[in-house]
Simulated assay, not measured.
Amino acid sequence: MRGFEARGDVAVAELDSEERAVVARVIADVGLLLDGESFGMEREQHEDAEEELFRHLRGFEAALSDPEDPAVLRILPNAAPTDREVADEFRRLTEPELRATKVDRLRVMWRALSEDGPEWEVAADQAMATAAALTDVRLVLAARLGLDTDEDAEALHRELEMAERAVATGDASNLAVDPERIWLGMLYQALSWLQESLMTYVMRDDV
């Protein structure tokens, strides 16, 4: 995986076929979380994919079906946490349009990652929308990983470092860490890094 770099009038990242498939799958799952029917066709296209590639997403996908999903509040937070009546009314008035906007952004990313070839191109005028969509995906992953504070994020980072050392030394079988958590944590970090590289592109001086 290579982060976004300016290439002419577009930002370009590079992901191999497995990386593209996994990121596209998670994007589709977050789209399902926001609008259950919008990504149905896309999910069907993954059914024949190699099961091993997506096996650590099983728990992630199952959790998305929960109608009380806490991840929804990460990407569609209450406007007035201390006033339920105001929060419900604000949500009623604004949520449909906000959901539609977020789903549209996710769909653009999904389509780009579903194209053949390693390059993921983002036009300059789509860079901020893409960064916002990546934020939504990262917030859902953060909810799944229980990342509520900076300390939680630091603890995850330590777990990932331990896992990497264990794999490097051939001692992974003795590591008492949930492999699904490690896998999702690595995905979370990779998407964070991609988003940072995209924001570096947005903030570059030669525009």
Rank of each mutant, 00 (worst) to 15 (best):
V103K: 12
I75K: 11
D83T: 10
R111S: 12
R105A: 12
D116N: 05
P70R: 07
S114E: 11
D69C: 15
M128F: 13
E95T: 09
L73M: 11
D116I: 07
A127N: 09
I75N: 06
T82G: 03
S114I: 02
T135S: 14
L93Y: 10
P67E: 04
E119Q: 13
A79T: 12
W110T: 06
K102S: 04
T94Q: 06
T94S: 06
R107N: 06
P96I: 05
V108Q: 02
R107S: 06
A133Y: 05
A87N: 07
R74N: 00
D125K: 10
V108Y: 03
L113V: 02
A112L: 09
L76S: 05
V103C: 05
R99A: 01
L98N: 03
R111C: 10
W120Y: 07
L98I: 10
R92D: 09
A123M: 08
E97T: 06
D88G: 01
E89W: 13
V122A: 02
E85W: 12
A133D: 02
V108R: 05
R105L: 02
L134G: 07
P67R: 04
L93V: 05
A124V: 11
A133K: 01
E89P: 00
D125H: 12
V72S: 01
Q126H: 11
D83N: 15
D104F: 15
L113Y: 02
A124E: 15
K102T: 02
D69R: 15
D83W: 15
P118Y: 06
P118K: 13
W120N: 01
A112E: 12
D88I: 04
A129W: 02
R107A: 11
E89F: 15
P70D: 07
P81G: 12
L98S: 11
A100Y: 04
T135I: 04
V108E: 03
G117E: 06
E89K: 13
L93P: 01
A112I: 01
T101L: 14
A133P: 03
D83E: 10
R92K: 14
D88F: 11
E97V: 04
L76M: 13
T94K: 04
R99D: 01
E89I: 10
A100K: 12
R105V: 01
W110M: 08
F90H: 11
T130Q: 01
E121F: 07
P96K: 07
R84M: 10
I75A: 06
A123C: 05
P77R: 04
A112N: 11
A131W: 00
A132T: 03
E115H: 03
P77I: 05
A123V: 00
M128G: 03
E119D: 13
E95V: 08
L134C: 14
P96E: 02
R92V: 00
W110P: 01
S114C: 09
T101V: 07
M109H: 01
D83C: 15
V86S: 14
R105Q: 04
D116A: 14
D83M: 10
R74G: 00
L93T: 02
F90S: 10
R91W: 07
A124L: 15
A129K: 09
M109A: 14
R92G: 04
D125W: 10
L76A: 03
E68N: 07
A123D: 06
F90R: 07
A79H: 09
E89D: 08
R107W: 03
A131K: 00
G117K: 08
A124M: 13
D88C: 03
D116V: 08
A131S: 05
E89G: 01
A129D: 09
F90T: 08
M128Y: 12
D125I: 06
A133V: 04
R74E: 09
A71T: 08
